Every structure is written in C-alpha cells, then in structure tokens.
Amino acid sequence: MTYWPYKEPLGDLCALEQADRYVFTSQYQQQPRALGGDLIKGEWFAYYETPPRIRLRKMYADTAQKTAEHNDYSVFELWGLGEDNRLYLLDLIRGKWLAPELKRRAIAFWNSHKAYDHKTGAPLAQLLVEDKSSGTGLIQDIQADGHIPVKGIPRGTDRLTRIMGVLAYIESGRIVLPKNTPWLSDFIAECEAFTANNTHAHDDQIDPMIDAITDLLARNSDWSGWT
C-alpha cells in the first residue's frame, strides 16, 4: 500500500492505529482481522508484583441472575488508577451466591479493602454495580444500609460494542494484573475465550473490567507517552 503523507500525516495514522487496531489493520494494512476468539490476548496485559502509588480506587460488580452450573458467576473487582496512568486490578472475588449471601459478600469485600495507607494508596471511593436483575436488588439493599457509596451502571450498548471501545487500552499495556494470585489464570482464560458471537462460556469477569476502563481511563483519556 502506498503511503501519501500529504493526505494523512504519519502522526494521524499512528493515533488511529493506537485508537483502533482492528480498523487500522483492515483499512490501511490490508490485513482484516475477524472478530473471533482472539479479540483479547493475554500477552497484551502488563503485570505487577507491587503496584505504584494508587490515586483512585473503585469497586465494580457484575451479578448473576441465577446460580445454576451453566449460569455466569457474580464478580466483584477492585481497580486502582496508578500515578503512572495505568489501571491496576488489585483484587477479585467470584462465586455463585443467592441474594442474602451476595449482599454479605459485597459488604465483606468492601470492608476488607476499606483501610488504606495514604502514602501509597487512596480511599475506596465507590461501588458500581450493573443495574439489572440481581444487581438492581443489591444496589437497593446496600443503599438502604447507607454505609457504602453505591451506584448503578445502566447498560445502553451491547457487550461487544463496549469491549471494542476499550480494547486499545488493553492492547497498549495500560491494564495491569497481579502476577501471583490464584484467580489470575481464570481471568486471562475468560478474556482470551471471549467471542463476538457470544459462543464463549462466561464473561462475568470481563464486564467489570470494561466498566473500570471506561470509568477510570476512557472518560479522561491521556495517551501522552504511549506509542
């Protein structure tokens, strides 16, 4: 393919590639990529042993409507925005819990991370929950107690659209996972198995990640220093 710098400056092309690699490889490199099971690659994630100073912490939850074997899990994830402008997955719990136990798990997870060192961390700011089915009930129960700042997350777009909107942040290495944790392999396996046509088994861990990236990175995007 011939490059015409007067038509599209190199800086603009680099910005497009970084913002949406799928469009770029298809349109400019004549290498179309199918939206199959390789949407998210484990190799794109960065990894940490000790996170840097965290300037903002929030929890994100995706709750399952039912607890049968084939149903998704309920998941709570703790994410922190580092001073290096990368997003750190700090902790995660996952299980199949009915309403009373779901509320107990949510409160316990919040309380286990409420304390912080002001020299290295930040207060726990908010719990954000997908506002549908069991999530709506959980939001109402926690709001009634009044001890945890909780907010519902409405779903206005489908999951594929939402994940395509944050994929560049993952591919650029701005999403950082802990190296030594028992749930890491399951988290990566679920990400790598995600398909555009919903033939994957589970996506309960992916939704909170999308919400965290959208909330903490995409809304205040700063690509300076990321090439």
Results as ranks from 00 to 15, higher is better:
T2F: 02
W4E: 03
Y6Q: 11
K7E: 14
P9N: 12
G11D: 14
A15C: 07
E17S: 06
A19G: 13
Y22E: 12
V23K: 12
S26W: 07
Y28F: 13
Y28P: 04
Q29S: 08
Q29G: 01
Q30N: 13
Q30G: 11
R33D: 12
L35C: 14
G36T: 09
G36V: 01
G36S: 13
G37P: 04
G37R: 03
D38T: 11
L39H: 12
L39Q: 12
G42W: 00
A46C: 07
A46F: 00
E49H: 04
P51T: 10
I54N: 07
I54P: 10
R55T: 11
R55C: 09
R55L: 07
R55S: 11
K58Q: 15
K58V: 08
M59Y: 02
D62E: 05
D62G: 10
K66R: 12
H70L: 08
Y73E: 00
S74Y: 01
S74I: 00
S74G: 06
V75H: 03
F76A: 04
F76M: 08
E77L: 05
E77D: 14
W79R: 07
G80I: 09
E83C: 05
E83K: 02
N85L: 08
Y88S: 10
Y88P: 03
L90V: 06
D91Y: 05
I93A: 03
R94G: 14
W97A: 11
L98S: 13
E101T: 05
K103D: 08
K103G: 07
R105G: 13
R105T: 14
W110R: 11
A115P: 00
D117S: 13
K119P: 00
T120G: 01
T120E: 06
A122S: 15
P123K: 07
V129D: 04
K132G: 12
S133Q: 13
G135F: 12
G137M: 05
Q140V: 04
D141W: 01
Q143K: 14
D145W: 03
D145K: 01
H147Y: 09
I148H: 11
I148M: 09
I153P: 02
P154R: 06
P154Y: 06
T157W: 01
R159K: 15
R159H: 07
T161W: 06
R162V: 01
M164A: 09
E171Y: 03
G173H: 04
R174Y: 01
I175N: 04
I175W: 00
P178Q: 06
P178F: 07
T181G: 06
P182H: 12
P182Y: 09
W183M: 04
S185R: 13
F187G: 08
F187N: 04
I188V: 15
C191P: 01
E192W: 02
A193P: 07
F194Q: 10
A196P: 13
A196I: 11
A196W: 09
Q205S: 15
I206Q: 02
D207V: 06
P208I: 01
P208N: 08
P208E: 01
M209P: 05
D211Y: 13
D211S: 09
A212P: 05
I213A: 10
D215Y: 02
L216H: 07
L216Y: 08
L217D: 01
W223G: 02
G225L: 05
W226M: 05
